[in-house]
């Protein structure tokens, strides 16, 4: 550094007299930085692979549907079903990308630099969280728009179809927020407690992947026909009674359906869409008062969210 020092001196140091924004400016800047980090901007080609791949994973199913609808001109995919099908993919997206916003900062010690600037731990977490939520929401809504286009292409009169079904647009936006808030908060909370990004992702995915078959088995329906025997003109005749079905865990089954945590947000989105194409899980959930799945969803978002904030609030720098 010695060779050019004389010149450096000559340019002199200039104090800054311009405007200074406060906390809002700090949060906004952090939000923009988080958004860029999420999509891999300004960080070389390799950093873009995962965000692009993950977005494709989420968007591929409706894109395929759209192509089929345009070419074959048939088929209908409901917006609610799209969320049911892709919520696990969205979660995968979040589990892999969201920890990127918290863990490297802690590993590299950058968190300290943020916390000595005019923002609080709460601001920091809020900026990171909401930036990721925005990216996830954009990807989701893009998928829903593809579904909408596909459906209107498959309909006989596209314009008429849209006029009849415009209500689905605010619905899928609301449901999108519900689902992305869920898939954003949980991986971020896990990422607040581990030093390696990959483990945060693996843990979240493991929990979601294995609770699905667990809940499936706990709510399995067993059907039996009772058989009665009668003697008819000297011969023994079997008579099949009515089929009797019961759940493997009896009356508890409707509670165990909640164990499938991946479905927690889609139960709520089904309510938003007033979805009436029930599958096994939604039949069972319907047996519960509607407040229960809503409370369960709330618990799964607010609980991890509170843990996340607490962790950063009480962090030893």
């Amino acid at each position: 550094m010695s060779q050019a020092q004389g010149e450096i001196y000559d340019l002199g140091y200039q104090h800054y007299d311009g405007p200074r924004g406060g906390r809002m400016q700090a949060v906004r800047s952090l939000w923009v930085n988080s958004f860029r980090t999420t999509v891999g901007l300004g960080r070389g080609a390799r950093a873009k692979i995962l965000p692009v791949l993950m977005s494709l994973v989420v968007i591929a199913p409706p894109a395929v549907f759209l192509v089929l609808a345009a070419v074959v001109g048939s088929g209908k995919l409901s917006h609610a079903d799209f969320y049911e099908a892709t919520s696990i993919l969205l979660l995968l997206f979040a589990a892999i990308i969201a920890p990127e916003l918290l863990i490297p900062d802690r590993r590299n010690g950058v968190t300290t630099l943020y916390l000595v600037r005019p923002l609080t731990a709460f601001d920091y977490v809020a900026a990171r969280w909401s930036a990721f939520l925005t990216v996830a929401l954009l990807v989701t809504l893009f998928g829903q728009v593809l579904v909408l286009i596909g459906n209107s292409l498959a309909a006989e009169q596209a314009r008429e179809f849209l006029q009849e079904n415009w209500i689905d647009i605010p619905r899928f936006i609301l449901a999108g927020v519900i689902i992305t808030a869920f898939v954003t908060t949980i991986p971020m909370a896990v990422a607040a407690f581990t030093e390696r990004r990959a483990y945060a992702a693996a843990f979240v995915i493991a929990v979601f992947v294995i609770t699905t078959p667990m809940s499936g088995l706990l709510t399995t329906e067993w059907c039996e026909r009772s058989v009665t025997f009668a003697v008819e003109s000297g011969e023994i005749v079997e008579e099949a009674g009515p089929e009797e079905c019961r759940r493997i865990t009896g009356d508890y089954a409707k509670w165990f359906v909640l164990l499938d945590v991946g479905r927690a947000p889609t139960h709520i989105s089904d309510m938003v869409f007033e979805d009436d194409t029930p599958d096994d899980a939604s039949i069972l959930v319907a047996e519960l008062p509607p407040a229960v799945p809503i409370a369960w969803y709330g618990l799964l978002v607010i609980g991890p969210g509170a843990l996340l904030l607490w962790r950063y609030w009480s962090m030893k720098i």
Binding site: Y16, G18, P19, R20, G21, G22, Q25, A26, S29, L30, N33, G42, R43, G44, A47, P104, D105, N108, G109, V110, T112, L113, Y114, R117, P118, L119
Partner: peptide, 22 residues
């Protein structure tokens, strides 16, 4: 306390903004 995958220029500009400079 430095990030790995940012250029010094980008990092400093970001930090200035977080400190309130437009």
């Amino acid at each position: 306390c430095l990030p790995d995958f940012m250029t010094a220029s980008e990092f400093l500009s970001h930090m200035a903004q977080v400190s309130g400079i437009p």
